[in-house]
Amino acid sequence: MTSPNRPRSFQEIILRLQSYWAAQGCAILQPYDMEVGAGTFHPATTLRSLGGRAWAAAYVQPSRRPTDGRYGENPNRLQHYYQYQVIIKPSPPDLQELYLGSLRAIGLDPMIHDVRFVEDDWESPTLGAWGLGWEVWCDGMEVSQFTYFQQVGGHDCRPVSGELTYGLERLAMYVLGVEHVMDMPFNDPEAPIALTYGDIFRQTEQEYSRWNFDQADTEMLLQHFKDAEAECARILEAAPEDSAGRRIPMAHPAYDQAIKASHLFNLLDARGVISVTERQAYIGRVRALAKGCADLFLTTDAAGAGSDQAA
């Protein structure tokens, strides 16, 4: 961590990742404008990993895990945090080298550190998705998840997408040598108005922890879950042609509802109103929605349907 190349703030690490992956030819997307549990839920990953069309994107995704809220007190745990996500289809043969290049870009020189690829298979029961890969260790700490998608929404991925997910706070804390996430410089510590992560998020962590655990109206959440589920099903069942006879299947609007249902489930879970046996049933309901969206997406242009690239 004595490299002169060392970034000075959380945002500098994000900016360097953005520049690096832009230079590798990825489309730099913006976060998806909905509440999600992880960067994988962004349609740029979930839906775009389906079908035969080539794809390369990178983006920051704010992610919410209500059960991980600790009122801003835990040095590592947050109910709202950032993931950096890279998705490239087909996975290029030098993806590991590209990834290592991104570590160099943020000041982690693999000649000084101990970077290792340790077996870790990835599975998302709510998305009906799984892949094989590793968690990447740097000096014994997990800094990224590296996955070759094999199935999404119950469909085989052909070609296979390579997915990289960086847990930004943890990675940045390591690079910057910070012990508590709230102490981490968000912008340059020498800036006229220097802001720490805590200046920006301590209060929100407290507020959301309280709301997630104690206040969220479970009756309303349950109703929202049912509404999202029903709307998703309705969109999926709608005729692919509109009133003017144009073929416009609505895979993305349907998927938005699936994302909503998934997040509502997470909120209900944090409120402790879902029993162990019900849990599986809820996960199954969300998976059924995600699967329906995947099925529909595969019939669209973005999935390469009808083109030569179709799998």
Partner: peptide, 25 residues
Amino acid sequence: VTVANIETPDDGATILAGNQRVLAA
């Protein structure tokens, strides 16, 4: 004892410090 996969110019000092940090957490 942690087992690294590399010989470094600082004889593993950075690696050990990082591992020590993770262990402390």
